[in-house]
Write a protein that binds this DNA or RNA. Structure first.
Lengths: 186, 186
DNA sequence: AGTTCACCATACGGAAGCGTATGGAGGAAT
DNA sequence: ATTCCTCCATACGCTTCCGTATGGTGAACT
């Protein structure tokens, strides 16, 4: 008979945790919250996963569209464009933060989600990279700087969902300056 | 009779998602995975939350301890210390990444968890800040740079769990350099 | 050999959730 | 008015899980 210690239980729980995933978002409580019953839900969706994928699609759609247009209209120099982009993407949005956090956590255990997240990341990164390249930065450096900024962005979202501090205007400005460091003209 | 559209369902699901939380980590599957039954679990733990809090404590313990000693032994200049710290904290650790992601997601819906995360963050931030201050950086700037680095760190963890790229050595070095930008001597 | 204790299996009641089946209400169209 | 179709309520069977109660097993100690 196998015997386990308390710590083995904890350790096993941690590894099991890396799988797990979603598992929130039950349909019946959701129905109650919306003031209807399951009958409504199963009219609109095949099953639970259908809803989840629909949410994923919605997130991807909103995550890849716009923003880009808004930035280029009001900014001209690379630094100004970066600042405008940072201001737009770092804007406080508790709901968006939580969604971003949940989906990225979900992606850890679902390849379909992971692919969707990868598409969104690709798109966002591509924009920042092209912005830096257009300013004269080398391809490799631009890509590294874009990834750096993107990590800051993800960190911002996740940190805020757990009660962390939002980036101040000063911090965003300083970050923008650091990101373009190495370029001759600002 | 209230009627909802498919999109209202999706919208309601998103807001419900912001609550949700944990909800993975069932005890019976966990027992099966470990080759035992529930009897074992309830011998070691009061209930499910007891396990969760035990995991949280374990995470906090490992998150606040060490690392610091390892860094100061091998590095002398601020830049070298930052590089050493970055190398240590950014080290690839899929399990650690997933735990970090899950706990931060969990923190969004549980004040106890949020407090624990805040303690860990406080500690980590304090170290980076003191490192920069000791190098002659002003208090405010040091704190902003520390938060910036911390966002990159969180972003690194979360991005990797979703299949994102790990920071290369070059990227870590460049980040370290940017973080100390503004200091006279490196 | 008996006792004690830590560790675990088994069985149970109850709750919650999934997905299906079926019918009803109400608007729109004809 | 009848028909049709959309949206939803209700009821059901099934599964999964929680937490408890109770007993069993083996090791250690005496």
């Amino acid at each position: 008979m196998r015997k386990l210690s308390r710590d083995e239980w904890i350790g096993g729980a941690f590894t099991a945790l890396t799988d797990g995933g979603i598992d929130a978002l039950r349909v019946e409580p959701l129905a109650k919250r919306l003031g209807v019953t399951k009958g409504s839900f199963y009219h609109h969706f095949e099953n639970r996963r259908d809803l989840h994928l629909a949410m994923l699609n919605e997130w991807e759609r909103r995550g890849t569209a716009q923003i880009i247009d808004d930035v280029e209209e009001v900014a001209f120099t690379p630094l100004e464009q970066l600042r405008a982009l940072a201001t737009a993407t770092f804007a406080s949005d508790p709901v968006g933060d939580a969604i971003e956090t949940s989906i990225r956590s979900w992606a850890a255990t679902d390849e379909t989600v992971q692919a969707a997240v990868a598409r969104v990341d690709e798109r966002r990164l591509g924009y920042v990279t092209s912005l830096l390249r257009a300013a004269g930065m080398s391809k490799g450096l631009a890509e590294r700087r874009a990834r750096l900024m993107y990590r800051v962005l993800i960190g911002e979202f996740i940190w805020r969902t757990a009660g962390g501090p939002a980036s101040t205007r000063t911090e965003l400005d300083e970050m923008s300056i650091l990101l373009v460091t190495g370029l001759e003209a600002t």
